[in-house]
């Protein structure tokens, strides 16, 4: 929903390519994402959407092209990627909570280790975040005792503890039991409403319709179509998108 007022560009991607051997997973991808924008990326498995997302904080490196996040060119070798990553939160499909720490310690680790907050302030912040994800009573338990849905909400709180300006979500609900999905999506929806810039890879079409400012359809390593949800879901122009939607909507 790029309005007539020119919004600040948060993520700028230009002509990015990535191959694994013979497999060309991303082909000449270019995409700009504005501040406060919520972008949902859909597409069949292996279409390159997760690889694209992981490139935005350099968990994958592009073969060529330019990626600028928050004004930092992360495709440039001289850029201190650790500093840039402090401002990009990431939520993983498999949660990846630190098994050797309690819930509270998971949330506190990065702010304390990176000198953003002292221990007292970090704990206060962590408890506030636990309130927003509705898990205050779990502060001192081991992460292994949590359900999947609880783990994912803690993972979101952990990322938010660094006060990022961009949040990346890599299929955040794909590993959850169906009854857990709602709680996690609720947290994400609140986050979107608070104005967070979010880039989300998901198969939850209902959520995309409801929350996204823009939906981007990936297929065969390319962005085949993008636009506001009404257009992408109700009047898809691209043939492959039509095919994809007919499959996922009637599944």
């Amino acid at each position: 929903m790029m309005s007539e007022i020119q919004k600040k560009v948060k993520v700028h991607v230009e002509k990015v390519n990535k191959s694994y051997g013979e497999n060309h997973v991303l082909r000449d991808i270019s995409l700009d994402i504005a501040e406060n924008e919520v972008v949902v990326m859909i597409g069949p498995s292996g279409s390159g959407k997760s690889t694209f997302l992981r490139m935005l904080n350099q968990l994958e490196t592009p073969d060529n092209g330019t990626i600028v996040v928050d004004g930092f060119d992360i495709s440039e070798k001289a850029t201190d990627i650790n500093k840039v990553r402090e401002n990009i939160g990431m939520v993983f499909q498999n949660f990846n909570l630190f098994n050797n720490y309690t819930v509270l310690e998971n949330i506190m680790l990065a702010p304390v280790e990176l000198g953003k907050l002292d221990k007292v302030a970090a704990e206060k912040k962590a408890r506030e975040l636990l309130k927003t994800v509705d898990l205050v009573d779990k502060a001192d338990v081991s992460v292994n005792s949590l359900s999947g849905g609880q783990k994912q909400r803690i993972a979101i709180a952990r990322a938010l503890a660094m006060e990022p300006d961009v949040m990346l979500f890599d299929e955040p609900t794909s590993a959850l039991d169906p009854e857990m999905v709602g709680d996690v999506l609720e947290v994400m929806k609140n986050l979107a409403e608070s104005g967070m810039t979010m880039i989300i890879v998901t198969h939850e079409m209902g959520f995309a319709k409801q929350v996204a400012d823009r939906v981007v359809f990936f297929e065969a390593g390319k962005i085949q179509e993008s636009g506001v949800p009404e257009q992408v879901f109700n009047a898809p122009k691209n043939e492959r998108l039509q095919e994809f939607l007919s499959k996922v909507m009637h599944a």
Binding site: L59, N82, K83, V84, F92, F95, F98, E113, L114, A159
Partner: peptide
């Protein structure tokens, strides 16, 4: 698990940390 390293790096912690 590889995800532990990815999660830590994604928060901005260095490899050594």
């Amino acid at each position: 698990d590889r995800g532990q390293m990815e999660a830590s790096r994604s928060l901005g912690l260095s490899y050594a940390k």
